[in-house]
Design a protein around this nucleic acid. Structure first.
Lengths: 152, 152
DNA sequence: GTAGGATTGATACTTGGTATCAGGAGCCAT
DNA sequence: ATGGCTCCTGATACCAAGTATCAATCCTAC
């Protein structure tokens, strides 16, 4: 079963209708690179390749929001403060973002849970979510530009 | 030496001018509750109490940005995806946000560094920053509303 | 097929933030 | 204290991301 069918199934299960517009947004989302904005998706639904009418801006935003609710997408926070979107394949995970090339890696193995549990105890909070983003430079970018030591 | 004087000193050290407008923004920032938006600050500079002309919107944004650069303020990401600002007294730290009452606690003691170092090794990244926000309910809010178990 | 609620898309609006640029205020040297 | 240079300001316009509205249209169950 393909990605898109799985997502459509999830929509149906939650009682959402599977409309042409939603299909078009889904197609466009699946064709995106690692992370994207809603306008990237909008543009993609309007690309010459795609047949059929383009989807409306409001619908694109609504569909992305719906996909967030269904955990099909997740938000990622870039280090300049902008929010992008990204397919959320696995469940809970975090992002490792390369500042230079913008690539994003998911990670789950690096476990924050113990930290969070300890924090909950110390602060007497009941903790139900957390968000961790890590920024750096990936191997390829490090290799390609060796900056002199001491540079900002 | 008061908070405001310390901040002004920091401005001067970095070669920024200490203008009336910046003072007014600083006053307003220091009078804010735990976290705030730029418009909160802007409104505060226009409050009837304050004498003198109100600061312009652009200036408020510029000053906040400057304070971010000087590490006087930091951004916090609320769980609805909006960015707020907050006085950043200590250096690097994270936020624990109560979903109900919106209070924010800083924490540093709960150390993410080892996690990040391990991640760097595993992924072959050079990591230079991270961002962690934790969401939950504080003790007071838990006590005041005991929801039945199983409610989403 | 059809009814009726869910969805759409055009449009207008909101929010948060930046660019521009003429004029004003700080700061330094004198 | 007076220039004078530069940085800063604020009005305004703009931009990007996202939401509200609402009549028209589409899905789905029947």
């Amino acid at each position: 079963m393909s990605d898109i069918d799985l997502i459509i199934q999830r929509l149906e299960l939650r009682g959402h209708r599977v409309t042409q517009s939603r299909r078009r947004v889904l197609d466009a989302v699946l064709a995106q690179p690692a992370h994207f904005t809603v306008d990237d998706v909008l543009r993609a639904t309007r690309a010459p390749r795609r047949r059929g009418p383009p989807v409306g801006r409001a619908t694109a935003f609504r569909t992305i929001r719906l996909l967030l609710d269904l955990n099909v997408l997740c938000r990622i926070l870039l280090d300049d403060g902008t929010l992008h979107y990204r397919l959320s394949t696995r469940g809970h995970h975090h992002h490792l973002v390369c500042r230079d090339c913008g690539r994003v890696e998911d990670f789950t193995q690096c476990d924050v849970e113990p930290l969070v549990r300890e924090l909950a105890k110390a602060m007497k909070y009941e903790i139900d979510a957390h968000w961790l983003e890590v920024y750096g430079r990936c191997r390829a970018c490090r290799r390609s530009t060796k900056e002199p030591a001491g540079a900002r």
